[in-house]
Design a protein around this nucleic acid. Structure first.
Lengths: 202, 202, 202, 202
DNA sequence: TATGAATGAGTCTTCATTCAT
DNA sequence: AATGAATGAAGACTCATTCAT
């Protein structure tokens, strides 16, 4: 099944934006990587920035949709946090370039579109904030500074995109579980709790 | 105390490289920010890349020197890790731009200089690796995957540079201590240990 | 017959490089002379140096090909030298700019490409060296210093490019013959020899 | 005897202008080669062009003065031509850089100064033209095209500056004599004539 | 005498983008 | 759908020169 050209352009952009940065990637680089002429490129994209926005939105939307779906009927805060961590780690390990682009290139966006992308990111992060807040409120998490903790965990998990390699010795699922353990310890939740037990079924 | 021009250029670069990225910063931006003409700029720097390298090296060297000094006569692995975390967090909170530049812009360096900068970074990270490994060997840390744990902690602490604001409610020293607690929990060290006790004096 | 743009650029470059020198010719000069914008110029050339190399190679290749063809089945050294001189003079009179560029601008080439251009030039000059050496060996030339003589003759003939004008009173063929006579006298060949006779058929 | 600074600058310029061309030589190059700062350079020269003009004028004046002195009381055209050739060859062998600069860089001069330099050059070349014309008039030279012959000889002799090396096997005096022989043959003067005899005393 | 600082105009080259075909 | 041609603006950097010290 041949790769549709539009998709080829997107993949080229993901690769280059992640590896060389948005400003470090030229239209010619994109054209070469897409095996297209620079002029043809413009049949499959709007501007260079449109391409960037498209990549960012898809990535964030995927994250948001997946998380929303997974958390749909989960009440227990520990389980919710556990699921968020695992999902986040897995996503960043599997789409390291897309997530790194979201992580690095937001400041290059023009104001209007930046706001909307940040809105999307905030929606996603609110899921984390809520999970932590709920846990604290329910008394299952004991952390003096929930906001800080949330940021610390997010950064830790996001960092996976900067070093994970599928050739590493630790299988991705175990890695994700390991991160979840660290996270639960960080919020002071007993990791031998039901949350852990429930996770066995995943 | 008038700021020497060379220093003014460096600060301009730190600001712009951190906020707009290396490739997103033009020579004109640097000149404007330094209150110099583009031609004059070149009296105070070699190339744009030289400026970047200078910033990176200073930052990493500071980190390395400080850490080396602090760990000089500390034997206990828990205390060492605690010190590393606090120092790292403080450095990233106080020099967020410099550290973000190190974090983001290494790939834009030309190969020769990149190697040397990476060497410096690796020297610093080895301090972390050693602390973790020693703790595991000594039986005070219990972590199934020391390498992964080290990366997770580093990313978590480095992330501080991306969100910390001195206007936040949590004083920096408490923030650093909080991170140290999370880190020790993450490696499975009992946080009521001597390490914690010793840290009270800091 | 409209002149193809690539050719227009080449001609502009030949004119300017010859008249103002490579370093004395700016990209703007080339653009103006080619009736193109500076950016458009780069559709038709690589770098300024590429353009120079192209001009040099074409010129030397033409010289080499023509000479090789003309000498193909000529045995007599005097006739060979005579043909070389006439061909060289004619070429330098007809392509004075191209040959002057080859003559003046080789030192500006970057090392790698310079070597290859010099190689081409040496191949051509070897035809002269061989002709002189053969004549000396056969006893038809009497010159104490064949190497010096070759250089003297080459410089003399090359100089034509620096002063010849088609508006001069002497027809080019006669000029070339005149030079050939001087050359044969210089190597001590009797100019009433068969060489002279044979040349009538040209 | 320490080299006076002004002279050091001049020598640096001679070297660089000859090797890299006037436009290929930057003020910084001159400063480095002179072991001076660029600003200091301007204590010892006017503009870059002034330096060039100075070099050219000195070279041409030397040539003109020497030739005038040598020809002062020589009547015989063959001897005069012989002397001119030898002197020209020797000068170009001994001052190859200065003469090459005169040869290559006249077109870069601004119109006013160019005219005066060309005037100097023409004065010198007139000595050649006169020698040839006198020889033809006196019947000792037989050349169908005196003007062309003069140019051919001049170019031939000037070319020495482009290849001569003091490490070559042929002593300079012999080289000069050899060129004189070729020249006299070229104008159809019997080289076993009095001219040759007279030259033994040189 | 000597130079660090300064600069407007210039260098070559690439930028992202449009458009006619 | 695809692209060669075209370009104004910008990229990093150097130019020759001046001037205050």
């Amino acid at each position: 099944m041949a790769l549709d050209t539009r998709e080829r352009v997107r993949r080229a952009a993901v690769k280059l934006f992640a590896d060389k940065g948005f400003h470090g990637t030229g239209i010619r680089d994109l054209a070469t990587e897409s095996q297209l002429s620079t002029a043809s490129l413009y049949h499959y994209m709007g501007s260079k920035e449109d391409l960037l926005v498209d990549i960012m939105r898809r990535c964030l939307q995927t994250l948001l949709d997946t998380a929303t779906a997974e958390l749909a009927d989960v009440e227990d805060p520990a389980t919710r946090l556990r699921k968020l961590v695992k999902l986040h780690v897995r996503a960043h390990a599997r789409m390291p370039r897309e997530t790194r682009i979201v992580d690095h290139e937001i400041p290059v966006l023009s104001p209007a579109v930046r706001r909307s992308v940040i809105g999307l990111r905030d929606s996603y992060e609110r899921l984390w904030a809520d999970a932590v807040a709920d846990g604290v409120e329910a008394g299952v998490f004991t952390t003096a500074h929930p906001g800080v903790t949330r940021l610390a965990l997010l950064e830790m998990c996001t960092g996976v995109a900067r070093w994970y390699s599928p050739r590493g010795s630790l299988p991705l699922d175990e890695l994700a579980s390991h991160y979840a353990d660290v996270a639960l310890r960080a919020v002071g939740a007993c990791s031998q709790s039901a949350a852990e037990g429930q996770s066995r079924g995943e």
